[in-house]
Design a protein around this nucleic acid. Sequence first.
DNA 1: TCTGGGGTCCTAGGACCC
DNA 2: TCTGGGGTCCTAGGACCC
Length: 435
Amino acid sequence: MQVFALVDGNSFFASCEKVFRPDLTDRPVIVLSNNDGCVVARSKEAKKLGIKMCQPYFQIEEFCIRENVAVFSSNYELYANLSGRMMSTIASQVDCIDPYSIDECFANMSGYEGLGTDLTQLGFRIKDKVFKDVGIPTCVGIAPTKTLAKYCNHLAKHYGGLKGVCNWLDLTPQRQAKALACEPVSEIWGVGRRYTEHLEKMGIRTALDLARADAEAIRNRFGITLSMTVRELQGTSCIPLELVKPKRQQIMRSRSFSHLVCDKDDLLGAITFHAQECGRTLRREGTVAHTVGIVLNTNPFRLQDVQQQAYPCVGLPYPISDTNTIIHCARRLLNQSYRRDFLYKRTGVYVGEVVPKGAVTKDLFEETETEQQQIICELMDSINTRYGKNTLCFAASKLGKGTWEMSRARLSPGYTTCWKDLPRVGPLLEETVPF
DNA sequence: TCTGGGGTCCTAGGACCC
DNA sequence: TCTGGGGTCCTAGGACCC
């Protein structure tokens, strides 16, 4: 039988801050998001005070002073460092792990029972070792599916009697049902706010209701993802360990401003910074991107303002990782989407269709290379006639068999073997683009 | 006054082809 | 003159996660 463990750092960011500050051991600690906007982590003492996750800090600032809460701005480098140490410590105790987020990972526990290992004891060993070596307190959930392991981890966190480790296989079927019956369906991994609303309307209110639902009916109503959650609650493993992390497809860098911004140069400054960060990440990871986009948001909490949530994106003639191109594209997109009368709160840059450098891009075209060259030459001629020589066309490709559209053609001689469909991005440039 | 910053996956429906 | 239906690709939008 397959068995999974989920090891999760308790109040991870807050615990990280405590590692190097023994004087904070019993004090309430909270960590704030960028710009100190809202609460993203709370120590158990802070939770006891009633501070909520994602609570805007300005609402509780005075309260925190009064209650002697230690307040930290987030320090992601520290957290990433401690996360890495936590993961390698866990990995030293089992044969393989599947890191899921900065503060938690799944571990393989299949096959240990045959060797006479008690899984609950193994859970305690992992927990003790991580605390001793890294200083981070954790909880461990053990179960035959990932969803149940997540749920057991939740139980381990909330029931002190379990001392931080909960093994589903130790519970009798009656205890299992009783535990699920006490849990609102919204606590289950994969059930968010929207699904909760819909499920409740159908009379599915507890985790037990969901576990006893008909997976086929759930599939028809909600799709494959939620039906897998149902089957996992029933004990059938549908979500395997991911031992090889898929390469990420997108890199995004964005930040909120601490104030509202309407000046284009201010936005440009921020966008240039984010573009540099994207380029740096691409080069560090040895990857290249096929699209560049920007994020442009007004403040959705200001109902009195005109709202814009824009994510315009442009396809590139060939994969890139250099900062100049990203900045150039981002500036163009800003020029297209920026509105002088809007009050902006957040901006960012993202690069998409990220692949390892040197990867062969899928060739979607039936034409031979010679025919493609011919088509490119014709299209370039027509564009040069219209816009002048050396015009670079960002936008994209072919509409159907034998039908090419100029505004969708990629016009880079020398790159015909890595063609790829790209989205339409509006009118052609009427400028010469330096590359 | 002040409300995070990343990501992924699935699906319905439209466009297009034969 | 009549005008079907299945397959595929793409996209926007919706949902979820930490």
